[in-house]
Design a protein around this nucleic acid. Sequence first.
DNA 1: TTGTAAGCGTTATCAG
DNA 2: CTGATAACGCTTACAA
Lengths: 342, 342
Amino acid sequence: MNKKSATIYDISKKLNVSVATVSRALNNHPRISQATKELVNKTAKEMNYKQNNLAKALKSGETKNVGIIVPFVNTNFFSSVIRGIEEELSPFGYHVIICQSHEDVNIEKRHLNTLLNAQVDGIFMSVSRTTIDTSHIQSILDTTNTPIIFFDRKKDIPGISTVTIDDYRGGYMATEHLIKEGYKNICHFSGDLNLEIYQNRLNGYKQALTDHHFQVKDENIITTGSSIEEGIEAIKTLWDRKSVPDAIFSASDFAALGACQELKKKKIKIPQEVAVIGFSNEPFTQFMELPISSVDQTPVMMGKMAGQVFLESVKENGSGISTEKKVVLAPQLYIRKSSKRK
Amino acid sequence: MNKKSATIYDISKKLNVSVATVSRALNNHPRISQATKELVNKTAKEMNYKQNNLAKALKSGETKNVGIIVPFVNTNFFSSVIRGIEEELSPFGYHVIICQSHEDVNIEKRHLNTLLNAQVDGIFMSVSRTTIDTSHIQSILDTTNTPIIFFDRKKDIPGISTVTIDDYRGGYMATEHLIKEGYKNICHFSGDLNLEIYQNRLNGYKQALTDHHFQVKDENIITTGSSIEEGIEAIKTLWDRKSVPDAIFSASDFAALGACQELKKKKIKIPQEVAVIGFSNEPFTQFMELPISSVDQTPVMMGKMAGQVFLESVKENGSGISTEKKVVLAPQLYIRKSSKRK
DNA sequence: TTGTAAGCGTTATCAG
DNA sequence: CTGATAACGCTTACAA
């Protein structure tokens, strides 16, 4: 037994008025008598009428849907950004559609296409690690009006708004903090340097060292992924050398955790002998017996700002050219036991 | 400058064929010559044609969108379930729309409505804590064909498929494990008993005690929320009494963490003097210096199963009556230091 | 193999 | 204040 939902035609037939009247009554059009409005609304309720937004969207060109593409949805960072976007946009009637790229540029491309097919009003994305060539994104910019907003993992494409944190500053703050605590030989665990965010954290690290008259040594920069295992490995290789560091600034909290675990195994005291500071302020960093210092990316706020940037660009789109926005949020340093020697 | 995207009309005009031919060619219809197919596809590419799925959906009645309603998206559990659903459904061309209820039944109601307006092909939901009356859900069941699938936080409504873990069994396993480790006076920190999941965990706890000839004492059942603070508070009140427990089975990992923190503060040794076991297997439980035992809910799997249940119900919907499915997943006990006395 | 035209459910324009 | 009708972009009988 199929339950076909009622349309404005069904209502119009029942009441012997035109569909136009029904439509206007439901939309509270000023030139409709109060009486018909009430009648229409009443019978709409009775017939369990549900507006078909598909038809409306087809007519208006607005779906009130936006797409979000992230590598994976079940990480603290990305799910928090999504939360921010949803909370910012929901009051304006928007729904968010989630896609996962699995760090694969081809999947990213496919999602981009299906989102456009779905006629989303905008697309938020954090590029995948394998996104080197960005022509697929550029081409959307060239051929559609759909605004794209990069958050966190951006690419430099003129015309695309971005919302990021100041990763450079985050790296600088973390490193400077270690210096001020008296650490002299500071290592950096960097992430995938194909991504700007990791480049910037690295650059902040370098600049802080330079500004405080420390030498930047290549052998002190180790490229790790964002996993516990890689943090453990990094410590192992470091401690195989003659000179070991007395502090580690990791661009990933997970690698920082691995470092802590391995240092403990080696009976090396944190923070007395070696300091550790991570990046992202993952929930676990504060729950540890030895809480790990970290740089917070304010992900919910990032999502909210991205939502605002989108709303502005929608407003502008009616009135002329759309200008690109570059929002840069301030990172927040959380100093905990793992890096406090003094 | 507005970039209007090309339609099949534009292509048909350019090639002097009918829109029907274009449509069929693009859809690889068998009764279209290879030559026209190639021609149409080529010019479609040239004109940067993008299929408008809105129009297609309006015609076909299928949007290939499903809605998901969760309290909050940025928790490990819910974001992992979402990941599972997305990964299961994405290969079949579905997109997932995320809504957050903020634990508020009114927001839940609103989302339910707007999702129906958006003509989603199905709705996945975990009810909010304030969802006592379920008439709003029942009414969808009565008036639409949109399948609803509950996951984790379900309500008993005939006709609605559910995917859950066996919380009863999870509670039983955790408690029995503590008993086998030799603990004699086991307390339970329960969550909001309005939710079935917490009821079931509590019942499992009770049954395990009974089966092993322990008495179930009301004063050993403490209702806490899912926060660290409430875990701390619970320990404080317990230790204000004359007889203290030697083990705690918490229905929430966060309350378990709070308990550990407070016990440590009181210089009480875990697991020698008091054992602690949580529920959910939050990432942090394994990262701790003293890793906390916990019951895993296999959230990604839960999402995948929910996706499968949906796909089946879509298949059935064509061919007659849709039957409800009740998938119950097995919880996984992760025994760690916090509860191993032997 | 291809074309014509109806229809999906709305909204908006133009008349009345 | 209300009605008739076109249009949004696509699919699909039914014809040819």
